[in-house]
Amino acid sequence: MPRPQRSEQFSDSEVCVLHVVQRCVRRAWLAGFDKESGKDYSYRKEWIRRRMEALASVFAVDVLSYAILSNHMHQILRNRPDVVAKWSDEDVAIRWLRVFPGRRLEEHLAEPTENDVKTLCRNKERLAEVRKRLSDVSWFMRALAEPIARMANKDDQCTGRFWEGRFKAQRIVDEAGLLACSMYVDLNPVRAAIAKDPESSVHTSAYDRIEAGKGESIPSAAFDLKPIPTEEAGRKIRETPVAELREERKTKRRNPTGRRIRRDAWLSPLRLNPKVLSDEPQVHTKGVRSSDRGFLNVSWPDYKRLLDWTAAQGVEGIAAAVPARLAKTLTELGIDASMWRDLVWNWQKYFGKSVCVGRPESIRASAESAGKHHYRGQVSASACFV
């Protein structure tokens, strides 16, 4: 059965949450230790993480959770057309030009100027299209995947595909599905037996939040959202050797704004703020993510306890009941606590081929709203929910 059309799963005009999976071509280990060639490409995971962090600073797309493995990556993304609607025309223009400068190779050494921003702002039709694209998950994934493929090909001195094809997307339709999916994503390295626990699962959102809690900071990969004066840009291009310009841009890419941030500052906050109305965009103003809205009615300490308990259940021989406090949280969300471990560790069994993630009644409602009788996975998922 062919994958559904993107328009059937999500729209850039409404807020929705998606579980996104992107695989390397032929599922080869192009971001890990490749047994066939004997080469270790693990450093590319940090390429992907930093690119994701950079894009989170310009797109109206919240990164809720992620995990980067040796031959694929998982992300939970939330598009925010309500946030991009709050941005000024100048904000939209500089954000777009930072990612897609639209210059030829020799001109690409120049950064977006004030004149570039004004020119785009005057083209109202083009600006409206750009504004829509900045809250489009497909454009976010395009801006993530293409540069990584080019960097890898240059690294390997070859041409051809790096990614398998278009990304797989599953719409998450309720909080129960979101909690389970987020836990599944964070525990991917543990499930794959390449990490023993969340604390050692580098290149996951759980690891970033854990290290941030210890006070770790990192050089920010966020784009600099200030255009440079046109005259200054022209003078710099005329008077500075090309090799020097290239080296300067290479250095600036490592830390465009010169700031350090908490390791998890670019990720969406975990907990929803009960004091803020649900329709409030909560636009972020510090330049590292699109909004300050959380995504779960669960505190980080409770999430971490549930994450650790679930990770431990994967060890052979361990069989334990969910602690009472955690079981209460799961039950309130409509999840059968006794099936929680099976739901997370055997995710593919329940939602591997589904286009929708959540409780059966939520999946059914989503299917009906799309004019369908049902979505695959409704029956198998019912065993895990109250």
Score class of each variant (00 low, 15 high):
Pro2Ala: 13
Ser7Asn: 04
Glu8Pro: 00
Ser13Val: 12
Glu14Ile: 10
Val15Ala: 04
Cys16Gln: 07
His19Pro: 09
Arg23Asp: 02
Lys39His: 10
Glu46Phe: 13
Arg50Leu: 07
Leu55Pro: 13
Ser57Asp: 01
Val61Trp: 11
Leu64Met: 15
Leu69Met: 11
Ser70Gln: 14
Arg78Trp: 10
Pro81Met: 01
Val83Gln: 03
Lys86Gln: 11
Asp91Tyr: 07
Asp91Trp: 11
Arg95Tyr: 09
Leu97Phe: 03
Glu107Val: 00
Ala110Asp: 03
Asn115Phe: 12
Thr119Val: 11
Thr119Ile: 08
Leu120Ser: 09
Arg122Leu: 06
Asn123Leu: 02
Arg126Cys: 01
Leu127Gln: 03
Ala128Arg: 09
Leu134His: 00
Trp139Cys: 03
Trp139Ala: 01
Leu144Arg: 06
Pro147Tyr: 08
Ala149Gly: 02
Ala149Ile: 05
Met151Arg: 08
Asp155Leu: 09
Phe162Cys: 11
Gly165Tyr: 02
Lys168Leu: 02
Val173Asn: 03
Glu175Met: 02
Leu178Ser: 00
Ser182Arg: 02
Ser182Gly: 13
Arg191Asp: 00
Ala192Gly: 00
Lys196His: 14
Asp197Arg: 15
Ser200Asp: 06
Ile210Leu: 14
Gly213Ser: 07
Ser217Thr: 06
Ser217Ala: 07
Leu225Ala: 10
Ala233Lys: 01
Ile237Phe: 10
Glu247Gln: 15
Arg253Gly: 12
Arg254Val: 08
Arg254Met: 08
Asn255Tyr: 00
Ile261Lys: 01
Ala265Thr: 02
Leu270Cys: 06
Leu277Lys: 15
Asp279Gly: 11
Arg289Asp: 05
Gly294Pro: 13
Ser299His: 07
Pro301Arg: 11
Leu306Gln: 04
Ala319Thr: 07
Ala319Arg: 08
Val322Ile: 14
Ala324Thr: 13
Arg325Cys: 14
Ala327Trp: 07
Lys328Pro: 03
Trp340Lys: 03
Arg341Leu: 14
Arg341His: 14
Trp345Arg: 06
Trp345Met: 12
Tyr350Gly: 01
Lys353Trp: 13
Ser362Cys: 05
Ser362Val: 03
Ala370Asp: 07
Arg376Ser: 08
Arg376Glu: 10
Ala381Trp: 04
Ala381His: 10
Ala381Leu: 06
Cys384Asp: 09
Phe385Asn: 02
